[in-house]
Design a protein around this nucleic acid. Structure first.
Lengths: 235, 235
DNA sequence: CGTTAAATTGAGATCTTTCAACTACGGTGG
DNA sequence: CCACCGTAGTTGAAAGATCTCAATTTAACG
């Protein structure tokens, strides 16, 4: 289900370490000098999770943060009535579990939506670097701010307006990274939990978009008409 | 409209300075030693804003963050269609404008809902303290995390479920601080922008609560039945 | 090829919005 | 002091959107 590898362990196949990380430019250590990272063999693990794998649960104590290298992760909370509400969608370069640095407890459940590759970083590493490399602070602030921006997106883009507008905005949002006109489709259940609508409404809306020729789907992938969806996303 | 006072200026009436701040325990400098703050006369201003006053606008450049000492502040963004969506509600102890530390631009509009008293802190102060007092980092992280928790609340509490449930949760949330069973009521317009419903629905819902004896209102104040609202807030 | 979960569809009930009318209230100026 | 005015709040009624529940189809997988 998951694979492990010491990121900085020279005995590990591939010789991977943070200073040669292929996504280094977008992750937590982006702006630290190579020398800062070379000093110690850090117990950072690279891990790959199959879809639907739980990384951690809300309320759980822990001492790792996760930077996403590839894939898609959802963070969610449970509502009073027991249903699940997705509060963040994390993509490569994003960080999960920063709250652990504040009080040692995760505030969300974290589950992979697609196959997801992450670096699992012990808080001890950050605390060590913290004292020696103040540059890390800025990097942490940037991640924290990015999380806030993403939360704002969930509020303004995904929790406001008609279900049509929400779905359209979601598709555009998902497509924004890989290409400009295609995206991996979420399950109707995840759409529902993310957009605050029912599974049926999500299904009907996507089906309607298909009928109108706005999207074409094929095994989990989705090609769409940007202009058309943009129009609907307006309101 | 607004009043100013140098927080640490010994010539200011009242002799106020951060080391004697009455809400010190809940604000940004909570855990800094008095000595850390005494060193320099810092250009921190205490200001009082009348209701409906704009502190800053989205997109604007700036170099101040605000800690709320008393009152109520809304942070909002505009939707594609021009309507306003409230993304955060700030109360005493909360911080507004932290994003300025990352890229110098405010991400929201900030407007006082009630008369609001704040400390207006230049980013330069934080950057100075930052280098000399690493303890400030933890304090900043705590604020950042609090902002995230509040954003999560907006998503799960105020943007999910029936309008009745949302209004009930809002009243309970507003009452949580002052007393346990009363709160200052928002305008229907702000309710609408916060809960993602129309002004009319907000009005009807509150009216319905009144008819059912769940709330009593009198000039902007609101007394409510906690158990009854809790019931409705469940879903 | 059978089994199970996910997605889709239909139909009616329910909720929310829309649009328009009306009321309450505070302040202004005559 | 009172009529007038503008804003915020309220209410009604019909249209529209979403949800609910049940049935059906499709897809996934061993």
């Amino acid at each position: 289900m998951t694979t492990k590898a010491k990121c900085n362990d020279v005995t590990w196949k591939g010789h991977a370490d943070c200073s040669h990380c292929s996504v280094r430019h977008m992750v937590l250590f982006a702006n630290l000098a190579d020398a800062d990272l070379d000093g110690a063999l850090m117990p950072i693990e690279e891990m790959t999770y199959a879809p639907q794998t739980t990384l951690y649960r809300a309320g759980e104590r822990g001492d790792h943060v996760y930077t996403i290298r590839s894939g898609l992760l959802k963070l969610f909370q449970y509502l009073p009535n027991g249903t699940q509400r997705i509060v963040r969608l994390l993509r490569p370069g994003d960080v999960a579990g920063l709250e652990i640095l504040v009080n040692g407890t995760y505030h969300h459940g974290a589950v992979s939506i697609q196959a997801t590759n992450v670096c699992r970083i012990p808080t001890a590493v950050l605390k060590n670097l913290d004292q020696s490399k103040p540059q890390l602070h800025r990097e942490l602030m940037v991640r924290w701010q990015r999380s806030l921006d993403q939360a704002d997106d969930i509020i303004t883009l995904f929790s406001t307006g008609s279900s049509q507008a929400r779905v359209a905005r979601l598709l555009l949002h998902l497509g924004h990274l890989p290409a400009d006109t295609a995206c991996n489709l979420l399950s109707r259940e995840d759409m529902s939990a993310l957009l605050g609508i029912t599974v049926e409404t999500a299904s009907r809306t996507v089906a309607d978009f298909k009928r109108r020729g706005l999207v074409k789907t094929g095994n989990g992938q989705c090609e769409y008409d940007p202009a058309g969806l943009q129009e609907i996303a307006q309101d």
